[in-house]
């Protein structure tokens, strides 16, 4: 099979939200001894970018966005270990989660998928994530950005706790902390000393990209 055909299969798997097809295409990349980085950049990335744009226009909905993300992750699991050390495969690593005491996940899942579509490696910690877990995981995964989501007025205080915890432990400057979610605002972000407030998923990706450039 030609390299172009294999790239087409990678793109098609993501665009059809098909994890099995993505794994087959990734195996074909390996079998054909193609450059894994090129396969990621020319196959997976443009496809997930298209999916993100369709979601933004509401031509597709959350399940398709997340399934496309799953398909991409399935292929990356095979391809990333083959990328030579030192070669850059993503803009940066983002650790993201919904804060302690809050189990709402839709907004966090959208931002997570859109960040992936925007070229970030995303470590999704899930919901009801302890303050110290955000920080510990960010350190362990070499993340530059921490994304903290909260949907309740009673839980946004946990976003402040992350920043306070980083400050108290002398790690504040190591990470860009972005906050978002229903009851959050720019004023809240400023009040707690966050590095940015994601008004929506697209805006969150812009903030993350800006943060990476600024570092």
């Amino acid at each position: 099979m030609s390299a172009e055909k294999i790239l087409e299969q990678l793109r098609g798997a993501v665009l059809k939200y098909d994890s099995d097809a993505a794994v087959s295409a990734a195996k074909a990349v390996i079998h054909a001894k193609m450059d894994p980085l090129q396969a990621i950049e020319k196959g997976l990335v443009p496809a997930i970018h298209d999916v993100g744009e369709k979601f933004e226009k509401m031509e597709i909905y959350l399940p398709e966005l997340m399934l496309a993300g799953d398909a991409m992750k399935s292929a990356l699991a095979l391809l990333l270990p083959l990328v030579p050390k030192g070669e850059k495969t993503s803009k940066a690593t983002v650790v993201i989660g919904t804060v302690q005491g809050d189990v709402h996940e839709i907004g966090k899942n959208i931002v997570s998928s859109m960040l992936m579509a925007g070229g970030f490696e995303v470590i999704d910690l899930g919901v009801n994530v302890k303050t110290s877990t955000f920080v510990d995981e960010a350190k362990a995964r070499g993340a530059k950005i921490i994304g903290a989501s909260a949907l309740m007025s009673s839980t946004i205080g946990s976003q402040k706790d992350i920043i306070d915890y980083l400050s108290a432990s002398g790690d504040r400057r190591r990470f860009t902390v972005l906050v978002g979610g229903g009851p959050t605002t720019q004023e809240w972000s400023d009040e707690i000393g966050a590095d940015g407030w994601g008004k929506n998923a697209v805006h969150a990706v812009k903030l993350a990209s800006k943060a990476v450039k600024g570092r």
């Binding site: 302690q100 005491g101 007025s153 009673s154 839980t155 205080g157 946990s158 402040k160 706790d161």
Partner: peptide
């Protein structure tokens, strides 16, 4: 500010 599942809540 209230924290979830804490005495404040």
């Amino acid at each position: 500010r209230i924290r979830p599942a804490s005495p404040l809540e």
